[in-house]
Design a protein around this nucleic acid. Structure first.
Lengths: 351, 351
DNA sequence: GTGAAAGCGCTAACAT
DNA sequence: ATGTTAGCGCTTTCAC
């Protein structure tokens, strides 16, 4: 072995060190690192070796100072909980297993590319302004946004400021901004077809909050599909995507339609609540009542019985969101794009 | 005197612009911004006005380049799920509502200070190395670490590298590193005292995974407290902190001790599972069996009946974790510190 | 194809 | 108490 004393000192090696080790100029090393053509293959090899030998890693700050790019994106959870001034702690949002899946999908895509998201919550006007400032200053190159309710003003603000951004789910009002979403109507149709195929005839549904586009689409898709099966009217109780709201909605449905034999619930969390209420009222699932959920979240397998549900490919969608954002960052002019994913039915015991 | 036209161009204003507007040098503006003494109050005022007028905001990259500080910390979720090479998506971890509370507490503390955590997962040797590199390069000034299992090697690696870091929960093996934790023994004692005060006499417990210090402490604390009440032996079934493991453990307990009338479950998620099994076996809660959980998580109120539980002040602990980290970053020499929080009993319907 | 040199915006000696 | 100046490590014209 040889001496190889790495550039010694306490500080980490710089371009200069690598250049010296390779016997070339800083510029050449920089070119190799940034994959710019016009570098002699032989020299390229020498430089690569020198990089390995010195253990060189580019300094972000220095690079960022000149390129005006940070190589960082913001992951913004917006429209989170209460958000009163006196509550120092943001976000019950995170509590929803859904968010974890989004984060996982995003990190799964970004990490191999050496980029790590900065986590931000934006539940008040003040914190939304903070997010905008952060992006405008160029502390991050763009934003991935997960809104928790329909009236979130952040998407519009982002679009207005022409900042690179991608949303999870279509915004309630049309806004020129990119997003990924799942085909909610198609998912609801899968549920409808399955319930009918199981021989169910007195079918009802528990919807999500109807000011959210996703809820509207799931409900409309379900109604349309059922109509096509000869069921023009479907009893519906509106929920709020929470466990408790699912219980309450199921109680209402049961009170008005004690003879129902199938129910499509707009998400798994509510379905979990519905299941408990059904059991409480002595209805066997799926014997007396078949239940189909939506999301294929962890709740689906935690249920008793395990839930037949519509799979929402959240991780893939989140990864695509990240991909789209990088695209927008690379090509600032690019018009907004949306990518819609196909759901799939996952059959378990509940229907 | 003045040009009137705000720094004009498309780019954002720099120190230079502010200096010109205020009629002073860059250095003076810098001093005002960084709150360094020895600046004439009158000039300070002028400068502040100029800053406001120009809408100046410091450039992170430039500052970071010279200070060797990023004003960024990493939030690392370590020892996450499967982590096989072929699974591109990290972390089922996030799925646990617990993590959301930690993130909320951290952001609550950091955000007012203008700092936002970078989210990282570290479930494999490779990703752990990535975290270390990230910190060593100075892309973040320190790390906040939430480990999900006992054998996580990252805390030791961090300590070895002498990187500023704070853990949530005491590490399984003693390591010279700072952490925050709750007094698990005291919490378990609260549960024991309460069950005994309710007149329960045939009491059992469901513990967490016994390789985790927190589980050991909760179990030992419970046993000791019960011993003090004259119950030297307490039946115990080990769980894994998951819903399903709670169900399984409760089944085992019931099989061996069908006459039990009280149970302390080491976390709410398992308690939720236990509750379901008890109901399934026809035991009324709290009529036949009293149940006390641990954490006061969202699961506690989602249960039927709502869970009496030991409150784990997760958000406060997370905030303290962030505070400690900033302290370590400011004073590199500082020896590791640990801060232990007191739990409290929250009485609801289950016991 | 490669090197020299000019900054990016800021802080921190060092002068004054 | 304030101004001058020298970089921090990198990319990027511009010559060669």
């Amino acid at each position: 072995m040889r001496q190889g004393l790495p550039p010694s000192s306490g500080s980490s090696p710089t371009l200069e060190d690598v250049a010296r080790a390779a016997g070339v100029s800083r510029a050449t090393v920089s070119r190799v690192i940034n994959g710019i053509r016009n570098v002699d293959p032989a020299i390229q090899e020498t430089v690569r070796r020198a990089i390995a030998a010195t253990g060189y890693v580019p300094n972000r700050a220095a690079r960022s100072l000149v390129t005006r790019r940070t190589g960082t994106v913001a992951l913004v959870v917006s429209g989170a909980g209460g958000g009163s001034q006196d509550d120092p702690f943001p976000s019950q949002v995170f509590t929803d297993p859904f968010f974890g899946r989004v984060a996982g999908g995003i990190v799964g895509f970004l990490r191999p590319r050496g980029i790590h998201p900065v986590l931000m919550f934006a539940e008040t006007a003040e914190t939304r302004a903070q997010v905008l400032t952060y992006l405008r200053q160029g502390d991050a190159d763009g934003a991935l946004l997960v809104s928790t309710h329909a009236e979130d003003p952040l998407p519009a603000l982002l679009a207005e400021a022409k900042l690179p951004a991608v949303l999870f789910a279509r915004p309630a009002r049309a806004i020129p901004i990119s997003y990924v979403d799942v085909d909610h109507r198609a998912g609801a149709k899968l549920a409808a077809d399955h319930l009918v195929a199981q021989g169910r005839r007195r079918i009802a549904t528990i919807s999500g909050p109807l000011d959210v586009p996703a809820s509207q689409a799931r409900l409309a898709g379900f109604q349309d599909a059922m109509a096509a099966h000869g069921h023009p009217y479907i009893p519906c109780a509106e929920g709020g995507f929470t466990y408790h709201s699912g219980e309450a909605a199921m109680e209402r449905l049961l009170a008005e339609h004690p003879d129902l034999d199938g129910v499509f619930v707009a998400n798994d969390l509510m379905a979990q609540g519905a299941l408990l209420v059904l059991r409480h009222h002595g209805r066997a699932v799926p014997g007396d009542v078949a239940v189909v959920g939506f999301d294929d979240s962890s709740a689906a397998t935690a249920c008793r019985p395990p839930l037949t549900t519509v799979r929402h490919p959240v991780e893939d969608m989140a990864a695509e969101m990240a991909r789209l954002l990088l695209e927008h960052i690379d090509q600032p002019g690019r018009p907004p794009t949306s990518v819609i994913f196909e759901p799939a039915l996952v059959v378990r015991a509940s229907a």
